[in-house]
Nucleic acid binder design. Structure first.
Lengths: 217, 217
DNA sequence: CGGTTTTCCTAACATTGTTAGGCTCTGCCT
DNA sequence: AGGCAGAGCCTAACAATGTTAGGAAAACCG
């Protein structure tokens, strides 16, 4: 299979121009998403920004949903890059804080990308299998970082991601500028640490690595 | 002031019919939201379900957004009812589990309502001041329950709500049927307990009520 | 019963995403 | 060079959506 996502047959100069225009469209769409929200623009707006009329966009994307899909894939790559750029540290506690940070900072610095990737604000849109694979890759990269922080149990990972998405969403929707939720990230990591890591790793943590559940009767 | 949100001048029989039709419309809208998602229907659909044509809905709501607002208010009251129906228990740990449950169960049993209230899936929609007040009332009721569970610090409350919204969202979007995230709710409450409550309240909890933050450098 | 208001309708408009069909220019092939 | 396939872009137009205008019937109230 020609793979199509990598180098487009190097002999074809037009294909290069095609891909470059595609990128330009996606970038304009992100720009508009930053300004007016992920759903706050139409195809005529994007087209105008790249000097076209709306129907011409269909040369590059078969639908608006396909454009969102390209944006989604683009966002996943951005997230993946951040995660993979995380410096490793021998201390698991430090690593856990970094894992939390890379996720939360992404939400703060790229709210539109964060929203499209994790809040799914576009009614009909579902990522294509290809893009979804990228999302899984990003998640997997995060899981790897967590593993290097000593978090390997599946439900610990779920708990961590739920915590992070919860905080990030609150940040994005309630407090786009302030640092209030940012501080809560560090606190929640400490909380998470004291509840999941065993004390051999975290000298200060509780000796009870997993307490029994106490459902309210 | 006539208040208008409560009893409509009791002498006017028409006003009663008006309010009743309004309720019927809102209920049909919820029905459609349950079937096709909060954004998966149009005014013509709702109208059809109550035996009308779309423009007639404008007798009752000045816009689709106003209909969403009525749904929002309705959802807030449903949530408020649940919270206020929470039985009090002298044991703070039990109370905290109940607080988590009432929130999470709402998300599981009324996914459409949960989505409209907390996930905000409708692009242009912002709740009106009146409806927003209801949302605040529901939040306040939850805060009161948390207070009765010994959680009074503002950032503890934020942490708790972020945790709950994170878990509930994961449940709603990843696992609408299973009980996986449900179990995580109890675990996360335990985690929360061990990190926030002081040990005088929870005999089994860690003796360190608040650990110092350790930002990754 | 007369007048007013409520309720509901049809017709139509603006804005969307989208399709059809045609012009123009590029770039490859003989 | 000539010619042709196709890429890129256009205008016109369609379908669906929320919404407005304006009118007819029904309900109410004196």
């Amino acid at each position: 299979m020609p793979s199509e996502w990598e180098e487009p047959a190097p002999r074809d100069r037009r294909s290069i121009r095609h891909q470059s225009t595609k990128r330009e469209i996606v970038e304009s769409a992100w720009q508009l998403s930053d300004e007016r929200g992920v759903t706050g623009w139409g195809l005529r707006d994007v087209a105008g920004r790249v000097g076209m009329r709306a129907p011409s966009l269909y040369v590059y994307f078969e639908s608006k949903s396909a454009l969102y899909d390209a944006m989604f894939a683009d966002g996943c790559r951005a997230m993946l890059d951040r995660i993979e750029a995380t410096e490793v540290d021998p201390d698991p506690v430090t690593m856990l804080h970094r894992a939390a940070r890379v996720f939360f900072d992404f939400a703060v610095e790229q709210p539109a990308r964060y929203a499209l990737l994790y809040l799914r604000p576009v009614p009909g849109f579902e990522p294509s299998p290809e893009s979804y694979r990228l999302a899984v890759a990003a998640l997997q990269a995060l899981v790897d970082v967590l593993a290097s922080a000593g978090v390997r149990d599946a439900s610990d990972i779920d708990l961590f991601t739920a915590l992070m998405t919860g905080l990030a969403s609150q940040q994005v929707s309630n407090d786009p500028q302030g640092r209030r939720w940012s501080q809560l990230v560090d606190r929640s990591v400490d909380m998470f640490l004291s509840a999941t890591l065993d004390d051999s790793r975290v000298p200060g943590a509780s000796a009870r690595p997993r307490r029994k559940t106490n459902p309210a009767g």
